[in-house]
Write a protein that binds this DNA or RNA. Structure first.
Length: 690
DNA sequence: ACATGGGCGTGAG
DNA sequence: CAGACCTCACGCCCATGT
């Protein structure tokens, strides 16, 4: 079902707006496709769930942000489509050869000699909670809070309640829902019980999280002369006996497939895929791509809407396009998926590359209050982070501050230091500098991350169990401590084999659209910048005087520092918090007029036919920018040195502004149109000339 | 050409 | 009583510096 356009139109035009509002929990792997037999999704009225989710979300800041992101992805898709359409048959046949060759090479790496088993505990946290409080049995229950759920039992899932869904929406879906707070000490305890069982089958098993693990059962099968089916059954029985919990298992020739398999007969079931090429290919042929680990909502969307790929098999059929459009590693990943390949070795320990801690809090309008709060929270986070680092003996020299504004825009700011740090004092000291530089902002989250570790730290590898939904719940210090404790508590043995969840772990960054090999005209990375409401783009500032406004922002920053110091004092500052958006709004209207000529019926782009509702002010501006840039590029390449039009000046103004406002990133959107020079180079040139 | 730094998006639970 | 949509890790891209 494809409704890329009407999505954001007002509800009068679109009778079912909720159908296009996808969230991770309405579009999760388990929910994604038809086969409703399993995953507790039987009888879930998906339409109703989506409607409720939509109704509960509609109009919120969060929702608006989701819409922005959605729109951005749609643009990206549009762009990639256009690019594919432009491929000449010559280019395509070239990439067909590239793809064919690569497929052969990948095929040659196929290893069917090993058996991997993936175990996944059923609704783990919920199951543990039920164990310790049997009265919960049979009742819909979720582990988590009103703002976020990390696990729901199967009774609750029947109502559409899922992990990563906010609690208040879950309650709407299921008014009877019982909420139970997280308790990691318990989960860790039970996790250890299960791991003791895993050890018997593979002493080097890879723990993927508290409730998931990969076991290489090749040896046990051989030694005991029994099949993967039997091992899986025995293991599940044993886990139940030891921990009183049910789990699901998948057995396959590699980890990627094993993980897919464990999902098939969940809960309390198993699925075994024989080590046979035909069996694998058949399995893969109809498998929806979304079932593959590493392919999420966005990638699915792109592969489907740009290439028409729905099943893994189709990755191979569209191999040439994939190779033409994506980077080497990404294309390789996709092709491997199409072949049903995955890693089969037990990787040597992988080391953590970053460690971080973040926290969400309620948005405070009052500046003085906000700043006091920030002080407090920053200090807390620094301490948690430092504690975690010290626990793992880590020291790092890059500190990144993460902020989420009241409008859900995410920013990160980093410094790289001369020396390695790990103390909370050091962290806080540098974090404060970063934070202050951003200050007139209304925030809902701050986070700190440390990277660039001191290498020779050949310490125990990271504990993958940390990457859970869950930690945040007890989000303060408590949870962190407990999570940390998993390390010590948690099986010392397996701690040294780190999981790499992504299996082939092929870097699949969909955002990249690089093709490799010699640069052909296919290559343009461009996507309009739709993301940042705050800065730049919507200011297709049409008047020269706007330039002065650009100069204002540094002053504001200066102001903020002052404000910062006189925290207690009353503030005119609250407005300034919105300074970013205020000018935008103004500009929005003025530029609207300017753009109107391009929008037929105020809806459809007269140049390329892309449809976009009038409410998408910023997106539309970006879009018209795109055409403008295109035109400019043509002119430039034709060495047409004519005088800039009014509109063009505006764009330049905006670019300057953007650049100076460290908004450089998405300008790439306009780069690399075919063999033309990058547009920002172009602007640079122009700017020098004028 | 290559290394490094910074910013962002993606996926997972 | 209303409001409440997370946390963590990774890898890619661009820009900049050498």
């Amino acid at each position: 079902m494809e409704r890329s356009d009407g999505e954001c139109a007002s509800s009068s035009e679109n009778p079912r707006p909720w159908q296009s509002y996808h969230t991770v929990y309405t579009n999760a792997k388990a929910v994604a496709n038809e086969t409703p037999r399993f995953e507790g999704m039987d009888g879930v009225d998906k339409e109703k769930v989506q409607k409720v989710v939509y109704e509960m979300s509609k109009g919120s800041k969060y929702f608006e942000n989701e819409e922005r992101k959605e729109a951005f992805i749609r643009q990206k898709i549009e762009h990639m489509r256009a690019r594919c359409a432009k491929l000449t048959s010559l280019v395509i046949s070239h990439y067909q050869k590239v793809a064919d060759k690569r497929i052969l090479e990948l095929e040659a790496t196929r290893d069917l000699s090993r058996s991997w088993l993936h175990v996944d505990m059923d609704a783990f946290y919920a199951a543990v909670e039920t164990l310790s409080n049997p009265s919960l049995k049979g009742k819909p229950m979720a582990v988590g809070t009103m703002s976020m759920i990390c696990t729901a039992n199967y009774e609750a899932r029947r109502f559409g309640v899922r992990a990563a869904m906010p609690g208040f929406i879950a309650r709407k879906l299921c008014p009877e829902l019982i909420f139970v707070p997280t308790n990691f000490t318990k989960y860790t305890y039970y996790s250890d019980l299960t791991r003791k069982v895993f050890c018997k089958y593979d002493p080097n098993f890879m723990a993927a999280s508290l409730d998931e693990a990969y076991l290489d059962i090749t040896e046990v099968c051989r030694e005991r002369g029994i099949s993967g089916i039997e091992i899986a059954e025995e293991l599940r029985t044993s886990v139940y006996e030891e921990a009183g919990l049910t789990c699901s298992a998948g057995v396959a020739p590699n980890r990627l497939l094993a993980k897919v398999c464990s999902d098939i007969n969940k809960p309390n079931g198993q699925f075994v895929l024989p080590n046979d090429r035909m069996a694998v290919m058949t399995f893969i042929s109809s498998l929806p791509i979304r079932k593959i680990g590493g392919i999420g909502k966005v990638t699915e969307h792109i592969l489907r809407d740009v290439f028409g790929i729905n099943t893994c098999e189709e990755m191979l059929q569209k191999g040439s396009l994939l190779c033409a459009v994506f980077s080497h590693s990404t294309a390789d990943f996709f092709l491997s998926v199409g072949l049903g390949l995955g890693s089969t070795n037990t990787p040597q320990a992988r080391f953590r590359k970053s460690i971080s801690s973040e926290r969400t809090f309620s948005v405070t309008e009052d500046k003085a209050l906000l700043y006091r709060k920030l002080d407090h929270i920053a200090a807390e986070i620094a301490e948690m982070l430092s504690a975690d680092m010290q626990k793992e003996g880590l020291r790092g020299r890059t500190l990144t501050l993460k902020l989420k504004t009241a409008s859900f825009e995410v920013r990160t700011r980093a410094v790289t230091l001369q020396k390695y740090i790990s103390s909370s004092e050091d962290i806080l000291k540098h974090a404060s500098v970063l934070l202050k530089a951003e200050l007139p902002v209304s925030l809902r989250l701050i986070g700190l991350r440390v990277t660039q570790f001191n290498e020779d730290k050949v310490r125990a590898p990271s504990d993958p169990t940390q990457k859970t939904l869950t930690n945040f719940m007890t989000s303060g210090h408590a949870s962190k401590k407990i999570v940390g404790d998993q390390n010590s508590l948690g099986s010392d043995i397996n701690d040294d084999c780190l999981i790499d969840d992504k299996e082939t772990s092929v870097s699949l960054d969909v955002s990249e659209t690089n093709n490799y090999e010699f640069g052909d005209p296919v290559c343009d990375n461009s996507l309009p910048d739709l993301n940042d409401e705050n800065c730049s783009f919507s200011n297709k500032i049409s008047e020269v005087e706007k330039i002065h406004e650009n100069e204002v922002s540094p002053l504001l920053e200066g102001n903020s520092l002052v404000l910062r110091q006189e925290e207690g004092s009353c503030c005119d500052g609250v407005e300034e918090v919105d300074k970013d958006t205020t000018p935008d709004n103004k500009v929005g209207t003025s530029s609207n007029q300017k753009d109107q000529f391009i929008w037929l019926d105020d809806y459809k782009c007269s140049l390329c036919g892309t449809e976009m509702p009038p409410s998408f002010i910023e997106e539309r501006q970006e879009h018209s920018d795109f055409h403008l840039a295109e035109r400019l590029q043509k002119e430039e390449s034709g060495s047409d040195l004519r005088i800039l039009t009014h509109m063009e000046r505006c764009v330049r103004t905006q670019r300057d502004h953007s650049a100076s406002h460290r908004k450089r990133k998405k300008q790439k959107l306009f780069e690399k149109e075919g063999t033309h020079i990058p547009i920002d180079m172009f602007f640079a040139k122009r700017n020098r000339n004028f």
